[in-house]
Design a protein around this nucleic acid. Sequence first.
DNA 1: CTGTTAGCGCGTTCAT
DNA 2: ATGAACGCGCTAACAG
Lengths: 365, 365
Amino acid sequence: MVIEEKLIKRFHKWRCPLASGIRGPDGGGAKLIDVARLANCSPATASRVLNGNPRVGQDERERVMRAAAELGYVPNGSARALRSTRSRLVGAIIPTLDHAIYATMVDGLQAKLAEKGVSVIISTSHYDLDLELEQTRLLVERGAESIVLVGSTHSAQTMSLLDQKQVDYVFTYTSSVAEAGAAIGFDNEKAGAAAARFLLDLGHKRLGMIAGITTNNDRAKGRLDGFLSELAARGLDPAAVPVVEGAYKVESGRQAMRSLMDVPQPPTAVFCGSDILATGAIKYCHEQGIAVPGEVSVVGFDNLEIAELTSPELTTLEVPAREMGNLAADYILAPAAQKRYLRQTELPIRIIVRDSTGAAPSQAH
Amino acid sequence: MVIEEKLIKRFHKWRCPLASGIRGPDGGGAKLIDVARLANCSPATASRVLNGNPRVGQDERERVMRAAAELGYVPNGSARALRSTRSRLVGAIIPTLDHAIYATMVDGLQAKLAEKGVSVIISTSHYDLDLELEQTRLLVERGAESIVLVGSTHSAQTMSLLDQKQVDYVFTYTSSVAEAGAAIGFDNEKAGAAAARFLLDLGHKRLGMIAGITTNNDRAKGRLDGFLSELAARGLDPAAVPVVEGAYKVESGRQAMRSLMDVPQPPTAVFCGSDILATGAIKYCHEQGIAVPGEVSVVGFDNLEIAELTSPELTTLEVPAREMGNLAADYILAPAAQKRYLRQTELPIRIIVRDSTGAAPSQAH
DNA sequence: CTGTTAGCGCGTTCAT
DNA sequence: ATGAACGCGCTAACAG
């Protein structure tokens, strides 16, 4: 009776293996038990061998390895994850892959994790916190052991979900940690302040800024705040500093620069929240015959490859995108004992001085 | 006895939930059975509701939904995948995320798949076919239902693994399919030929090419072959056409251009296998005071955002990166019956004429 | 060092 | 329309 039932089940399995290929039981579906049988041992031993458990004899080990190779055995990750509660999966939620600054971070993250056999599930939120929550839910569902997020501003539900499901997380592009989790990044306010200082030291008195959209974007907001604070600290009135926000597109930068420059007393120096915006700004200056840096200095942010393609080449602040990805991976892979010490890693921001900045014009007319 | 044993198990579970939070059984680990209990029904019914099975009463359905929400229930993807053999996971193996052309494709892929609750695992091969094989194995292990690859050149082992494990796959950036799977892309040879035709029609007689590294890269090779074939078809000697290969870096393009131009009779038109290379080429011309397009025309490939940032702006061939990602997603999500018709999708390649190309100099000295 | 046993959480039969 | 039982493939616990 019992045997009969099993046979029926098997029959069902043969008939509809989902795809149309009529595959014998040996073809694609070698399981651990098949390996064990071929190696003349129990599935437990086979499992131990394949997981590098050292407490296995030399001959057993070799027989299992050979059997696995011969059968082309590929373990079933779902079963493994279910049983061991370790998925070896990490999630990353970034605004978009269309911006090199994020793509490069993910590249660095993935490269380091892949070395240890950990895979990265990627998803994009388009700067939308509700979407981010949904993506988070999906990643938790998939069993992600850690989730990499951008910035430190996230919906309360996202954070409590992570907290409740005990999923480790790491913020990037920021240095402010939450109660749990880690932050691998830099201080956007300090960076903004550094840009201000640099321009002030060149003698500029009329400054402006083209910022990224600051809504739901603590990085863009931080750069802006830091920039204005430093100006205030040096005796300028922040309220008198023209600020335009724009999406991270060349065209936005171009239009923003027009609205900044097309006034009676335009700024002599403009800080841009991204190289993309800065590039657009310089493009506008070209079109209008405005000399850079003769009439106006331009500072970017990110140090993308394009910063060396503009003429003049762009002075900018370097964002260590790849390094953040690498370090986030290090944190994720670190043993729990070490995580304490890695969880708040602030990277320095260097200013890369090129040719788009110069001394303030001697007399501002 | 039996009951006692169960209690012991539970005790173990409480004590070491892997992380340090001492969490009651209600806190983070609501399972389907908890939802069922709270909703006063069997786990089977709860499962049906959560999977949208219509054969459930209205009241039951609502009770289950409410219970799930109240408990913050998140299904366990591994268990689900194990039981249903559907992981809702797709893998993508690309050379690198550091090149916008691939990052954008993945962005398009991910966006479309996410709409249907399918997640993307990403991994990078760095143009290394052995690494690609390893990544493939890992993705198969993770249960990827489909795998997106770049180009049509892959190791035999990779292909046989996919074949044996019945994993669907789709090539991108190419129009040549394998026996199984799909190809969503364009014909690189046709594209190379189109570039040649365009330059020939402008009257150029001395042409050159800066190609990407063609080793293991059928796309780079295809563009080169197509370019040379078309020249041959128009009566030029392909052997006399100078070709330099370079990695996709601005600096490579710059150096390649130097070796092309620093000869007695330099070409009057150069086709570059990528906008990155073309940008470097133009940079070299600036440095040397070579007029573009006055003395030499330059054509790029990809139509990246940087193509509009060079001066002169770059004439280039548009690669539909995002669209390929979208269409790959469509193919993957399509019902088996439709896949036949989608599996070979060749996208047209447009030439975007900007200012880096012009008529051949009237007398080539 | 090895085998035996049990069950991770869920979806899916088969009954009713 | 609902519930009971079973097992997906694997590894953790225990016994020897």
